[in-house]
Amino acid sequence: MTLSNKQKQFLKGLAHSLKPIVQLGGNGLTEGVVAEINNALAHHELIKVKIPSDDRDEKTLIMDAIVGETGSLKVQAIGHTLVIYKASDDNKITLPKK
């Protein structure tokens, strides 16, 4: 599944007021962190993840790994914050038509 620009803009608007739910620690991306992200996605569908890394390439790799391992869609990455979306069975967020 891919998101259209219209859908991304809609999700960015919803994510604007959200606080980061998951924050990576000194150990980086561990199995426990991935499990916590999956739990948060199942409950909220749209979450922010804070990645405290000063190295741009490392941050990009971590963001890509999170998206790949959780099966989510990257909505936006600003600074140290990644916004991801994954539809749950309950469909809490109704996306606009493409």
Rank of each mutant, 00 (worst) to 15 (best):
G68W: 03
I37R: 05
M63F: 05
L46K: 09
V34H: 02
L82P: 07
L41A: 04
L14F: 08
M63N: 04
K8L: 15
D54V: 09
S17L: 11
G25W: 10
S72C: 14
T30V: 13
I78K: 08
E69S: 02
S17F: 13
S72Q: 03
V33A: 08
E31T: 05
G25V: 05
L29R: 00
H44A: 13
Q7T: 11
H80W: 01
K12Q: 12
T70K: 05
K74L: 14
I47H: 04
N39E: 10
S72M: 08
V75N: 03
M63K: 13
A87D: 07
K48T: 11
D57C: 01
F10Y: 15
K8W: 02
I51W: 00
P52W: 07
A35R: 11
D89N: 12
I51F: 05
N27K: 15
K12F: 08
L11D: 02
P20L: 08
L46Y: 04
K74S: 10
K50A: 10
S17Q: 14
S88R: 07
N38E: 10
V33N: 00
E36V: 01
N38Q: 14
Q23K: 11
I84C: 11
E45T: 00
V83S: 07
G28R: 08
V49Q: 06
E31R: 12
H44R: 12
V83K: 00
L41N: 00
G79Q: 05
D90W: 03
S17D: 12
G79C: 05
H80Y: 14
L73E: 15
I78C: 04
L41V: 06
T30L: 00
Q23R: 15
I66A: 01
